[in-house]
Design a protein around this nucleic acid. Structure first.
Lengths: 222, 222
DNA sequence: CGTTGCGTTGATCTCTATCAAAAAAGGTGG
DNA sequence: CCACCTTTTTTGATAGAGATCAACGCAACG
């Protein structure tokens, strides 16, 4: 795989000139992970950040009681640990591949130098940060103001795609993961899905959620 | 008040050269707010961000049921809405002064131009973003993994200062605000404080929380 | 003084976690 | 393809945390 070409797929790097991409590729290395392999651990010194070329990784923390808690899932085109670039500190969470995953490793130091030469890049990165921050603000709001049913409804609605005449939402992660992502446990997720099905808002077909009553699902999501 | 001097107090701008501060001051204007006056509304077009010179503002959203929900409180030295700089969109929340507050208004457009000339600034800003992101990650973890008693304990511990021989924590906001900030309601906060007092971990003296058993309070906070 | 908003207390109810166990779904090696 | 084992998902019963509703004391303020 050609590194400049891969980078070009990203929202972030998509606006780079081919010259900039070539420069970036100079200090970028490819990192391949098998399913469940860890990219970094919480507390590890952060010397680089990553770009997901293919596959997906989950970012999670472990509570004092040993419970794993997913913070987010990053897929191809996303950046991982870019928040660690400018803080000289350590990774704030664990990162583990959810499938066979290919990443580009971008050393912090080289990247900062590049920014100094090409400030436009910084603006793109900051744009990404802004989005991320906004997303977290929403998440916090969600966690404090809404119950699980509405969080689940929101998740389903955010994932919507069209299949012939129907609205569907592919569950690309296990329900166990989804529960963790929604800030709950599998049992509760199972019951919540059941309740939405009972009320005729959704149906389940294998890995897909089929929307049966979009309007009412939106109402639940608020 | 001298603008460059004021800016210099900030963590963010503290690293700027006097030349840079002077430049920044050129397009910066002073904005004064009375208590409870709003700086901007959710959904309003975001054309500038702000630096809090004195006083404090709260960032909050309003739920569909009309309930106000505080996201964070920014004090002197903090930035407000810097996440809106690079997203061309709108402010994602309301912002209202909690006291008599003086802010510096920094137009987005001018600031971006300045970054292009002085990439170092960008790195400082990104540093701030990183910190903020980390903070939110912690907050999300807090909300999903800890109960209110431990959140409250954490809040008290983060506010700690020394008064002669005692550890104290000043409640600089109303309990109603604090409840909102901790993601709960005043009734529950009141009961939680009561429980901590009953167990001899803290005491209350006017606007101050007096720590009576630091070790056990830390245990509750985990 | 009456009014208004804040803080506290009590009773009750709802949601969600926990614990336990069965059912279903995936592997894996023969 | 099957028997076996592991992990995920579902279901049930129960307990606990926190929200809601209602009421009251209290201070600030016109």
């Amino acid at each position: 795989m050609n590194i400049p070409e891969t980078l070009n797929k990203s929202f972030l790097f998509g606006s780079f000139s081919s010259d900039q991409l070539r420069q970036l590729a100079e200090f970028t290395t490819v990192k391949k992970l098998k399913k469940d392999e860890r990219l970094f651990d919480e507390g590890e010194k952060a010397s680089a950040f990553y770009f997901v070329a293919s596959g997906s990784v989950k970012i999670y923390r472990i509570s004092s009681e040993g419970q794993e808690h997913t913070i987010e899932i990053q897929r191809d085109g996303d950046l991982v640990a870019e928040a660690a670039i400018f803080d000289k500190e350590t990774y704030p969470a664990f990162c583990q591949a959810m499938d066979e995953t290919v990443l580009l490793r971008i050393p912090k130091h080289d990247f900062i130098q590049m920014i100094e030469r090409h400030p436009r890049i910084a603006i793109e990165i900051m744009h990404g940060y802004s989005k991320r921050l906004r997303w977290f603000v929403r998440l916090v709001e969600d966690l404090t103001m809404h119950n699980i049913k509405s969080r689940l409804a929101r998740y389903i609605l955010n994932n919507l795609s069209r299949d012939s005449e129907r609205h569907i939402s592919k569950l690309s992660i296990s329900k166990k993961e989804l529960a963790s992502l929604l800030g709950t446990i599998p049992e509760t997720l199972s019951r919540t899905l059941k309740s939405l099905k009972k009320d005729g808002l959704i149906g389940e077909e294998g890995d897909y959620i089929v929307i049966q009553n979009l309007r009412r699902l939106r109402e639940v999501a608020e």
